[in-house]
Computed example of a mutant assay.
Amino acid sequence: MTAPRSAADSPVRDDLQVVTFGLGREVFAVPVVLVREILDYQVPSQVPGGPVHFLGLTDVRGLGVPTVDFRRRLGLPPVEPTLATRIIILDVPLADRTLALGVVIDRVLAVSTLPGARIEPAPDIGTPWRGEFVDGVVRDADGFVVILDVSRIFGSEDRVLAEMEL
């Protein structure tokens, strides 16, 4: 059995400026330094042969950017796009380069600064889960903001996407 984590176990972190967004009722965040831009949703051009969460290519000023359904990538059920649906263009740091990647999310919430003192490590729930995708969590009035590690989310199994950047 794992001992509960305490504030003393957590390293001191710097404040983190993030873009927060919603997928269903859940709130996630990515560091703003990784966000190139936020686009209104447009249907990506399909490309066969990718993983189930790969939607195709999005035209970003004449460049084809691989685009994924972030819900599916995180194991959530897909939903139909709405007027609030957006594509966040991320610069994902990989071992050998930076990958431009579009991620479809339900809605953008805010650009904000999370105080480093409030960022907790990913919780240990005692069972295998995709905890390596989580860089930290912050409690807020409505629950938690989950800070995602996009390098781990897209750097591990998405070699197809990394090779498709045009």
Rank of each mutant, 00 (worst) to 15 (best):
I119A: 02
F144H: 10
G49Y: 02
R25T: 14
V150C: 13
G155D: 12
V43K: 15
G143P: 05
V60K: 05
D40F: 10
I147H: 05
F28K: 00
R73C: 01
V160Q: 12
T98V: 15
L76I: 03
W129A: 13
L90E: 02
G116F: 04
G50H: 11
G75V: 02
D106I: 07
S112N: 03
G22M: 07
G56L: 00
M1N: 13
T82A: 06
E80G: 05
Q46C: 01
E163K: 15
G49P: 05
D135K: 15
D140Y: 12
R152A: 06
D135Y: 15
A95E: 14
R139F: 09
E37L: 05
I153D: 04
R107G: 04
V65A: 03
D91S: 14
T113Y: 00
T98K: 07
R71M: 07
A110M: 05
T58S: 15
P44T: 09
D15A: 13
T67Y: 00
H53M: 00
V19D: 00
V111A: 11
P48R: 09
P31R: 14
R97M: 09
L99C: 02
T85Y: 10
L39R: 10
G64P: 10
R130W: 03
S6I: 07
G126Q: 09
F70N: 08
R86D: 03
Y41P: 10
D140V: 11
G75K: 01
S10M: 00
A122C: 14
R107F: 08
D59R: 12
V160G: 03
E163D: 15
R73P: 01
L166C: 06
R97E: 10
D106G: 06
A3F: 10
V92W: 01
R61D: 12
L114G: 07
F133V: 03
P93M: 12
W129Q: 11
T2K: 08
T82Q: 12
A7P: 01
I88Q: 02
P93T: 13
A100C: 02
E132A: 10
P78E: 05
D59Q: 08
L90R: 04
F54Y: 08
L23W: 06
P4W: 13
I38R: 04
P11Y: 12
L148R: 00
I125Q: 12
A100H: 06
V43M: 12
L94A: 08
R36W: 03
L83I: 10
G155Q: 10
W129I: 10
D59I: 03
E37H: 02
V19W: 07
D91Y: 10
R107C: 07
G116M: 04
D69L: 05
V18R: 01
Q42D: 05
R159Q: 15
V33P: 01
V104E: 09
F54M: 03
L39V: 05
P115Y: 06
V68C: 07
A8V: 14
P115I: 07
P78F: 04
R36Q: 12
E157F: 13
R152I: 01
A8Y: 08
A8W: 08
L76G: 04
L55E: 05
A7M: 12
D142N: 15
